[in-house]
Amino acid sequence: MAMHIIPSELQDLQLIFDFYALAVAHQKRVFNRHWQDFDPDMVQAEIREQRQWKVLIDNRPAAVFATAFSDPLIWTEAEPVSAIYLHRIVTHPDFRGRNLVQSITDWAVAYARQKGLSFVRMDTWADNDKLLKHYTACGFRHAGTVTPKSKGLPPHYAGITLNLFEIDVREAAG
């Protein structure tokens, strides 16, 4: 199995939104919340800035995810933190069970080290115990909860509480 994580390209926009649709369908089956529509202009900007990624397994798209280098609407710190933030990880149903979140996490730790960043961070709904266990099993430390102001965030953030997760790259194995 040859796996590669590479930047998405503008011609991947439909693929990314197809993956988001698959994720929403799955979320509706297994949980009481689901993502709302994402702004195509936001995703195009992420692609142009090389912050939208795809995971290829044997040259087939297996997962997509986005990154950011700040997340002030969720991580409301007084001082900026040197971190890469993972967002919207979606695994195609054909590739579930291959622990791609762990592969993405390992990639993010290596990427953070290469860029001189101190943390890998992510968030998810606070009432999703399954994801809490999954992310901590991937090496993330639960870093608390937050109820963000939804202004400026996608619609599914309205009125929710999030679990925050992080890996201190300086302490991570590898």
Rank of each mutant, 00 (worst) to 15 (best):
T91R: 08
R48E: 15
D106I: 09
L162Q: 02
W53K: 10
Q14D: 15
R98G: 01
N163C: 08
L56Y: 07
T161M: 12
I84M: 10
T105K: 03
R96A: 02
H34M: 04
E49H: 09
H34W: 07
P154V: 07
Q36H: 10
N163L: 03
V109R: 04
Q52V: 01
I167N: 04
M3I: 14
V64I: 12
F65N: 00
Y85V: 12
K133S: 11
I74M: 02
A110N: 14
H92R: 15
F38H: 13
W75A: 04
E77A: 11
A45S: 13
K151S: 09
R170E: 12
A137H: 12
Q11P: 03
G174R: 10
A126V: 04
Y111Q: 13
F69E: 14
K130T: 10
M3R: 10
V120Q: 04
R51S: 07
P154F: 06
E9Q: 14
P148D: 02
Y85A: 08
G97T: 06
N59S: 11
F17S: 06
F65K: 03
E46T: 09
A21I: 00
L86I: 15
V24H: 06
Y20L: 07
I89S: 03
A143K: 02
K54W: 00
L153Y: 06
F17K: 06
R121T: 00
L117E: 02
A110M: 14
I6W: 01
V30H: 12
P148I: 00
R113E: 08
A172N: 07
E166F: 08
C138H: 05
M3C: 11
T67K: 08
R96G: 01
A2G: 03
F140T: 02
S103Q: 13
D123C: 08
C138Q: 05
S118G: 09
F38Y: 14
V101H: 07
M42G: 07
A83G: 10
D168F: 05
R29M: 10
M42F: 15
